[in-house]
């Protein structure tokens, strides 16, 4: 079980961090989603929400393959004069929406697990707060993304602000998974 949470945390980290050299992501999202799926498969029987997150990560994995080989856009220009086309926007919006569903499955799945354990009130509370932060910034990004079609400087600055918030909220999800790992610490070999 511990390894499952660890893989889930590493997968989230890989999916979150993009280091690109000449447009090539040296930490591809494919690896991140694969680790998330492997991690969730170790814990998903416990909650239907984990199963939802597992399925969503699977769809994300499928989308990230053409992105890795450049068949689908993996990044957007959000500043004036570099506005992206409608198709790029749709791909990006679908990706953000799927990420939100996956995060919902992970955060609320952990909350349900914590509530059912009855001794983990703090963890359940944290899981709800993390989900609210992820949802708040994710929803703002979903609403703002179509503005990239008609991007102005103010929109670009708003994207930076909410994008940073989204990034920090995702780090918080990793912290939540690590905390869950510690609270339900049962070594694999047992």
């Amino acid at each position: 079980m511990r390894a499952a949470y660890s893989r889930l945390a590493w997968g989230l980290a890989l999916e979150l961090i993009d280091i690109r050299i000449q447009h090539f992501d040296i930490l591809p999202d494919v690896l991140g989603y694969l680790l998330i799926m492997i991690g969730l498969s170790g814990i998903q029987p416990q909650s239907k929400l984990f199963r939802v997150a597992w399925g969503t990560a699977g769809v994300q994995l499928l989308i990230s393959i053409p992105q890795l080989i450049g068949r689908l856009p993996s990044s957007l220009s959000l500043f004036p004069g570099e506005s992206s086309g409608v198709n790029d926007m749709i791909v990006s919006n679908v990706g953000t929406l799927l990420d939100l569903v996956m995060m919902y499955g992970i955060c609320i799945g952990i909350r349900e697990k914590a509530l059912s354990a009855e001794v983990c009130g703090d963890l359940a509370h944290m899981a709800l707060r993390v989900w609210q932060a992820v949802f708040g910034f994710g929803a703002a990004m979903l609403i703002l993304l179509p503005f990239a079609l008609n991007a102005g400087l103010v929109t670009g600055m708003l994207f930076l602000f909410f994008g940073l918030g989204d990034f920090i909220a995702s780090l918080w999800v990793i912290a939540l998974v690590r905390k869950t790992d510690r609270m339900f610490a049962v070594p694999d070999r047992l």
Binding site: A139, L142, P146
Partner: peptide, 20 residues
């Protein structure tokens, strides 16, 4: 409410985009 706002954002922005 968020879904409605996302939909409105898409419709409005595509309308402006197409018009330009």
């Amino acid at each position: 409410a968020v879904a409605a706002l996302v939909l409105a954002s898409w419709i409005g922005n595509i309308f402006v985009y197409r018009g330009n």
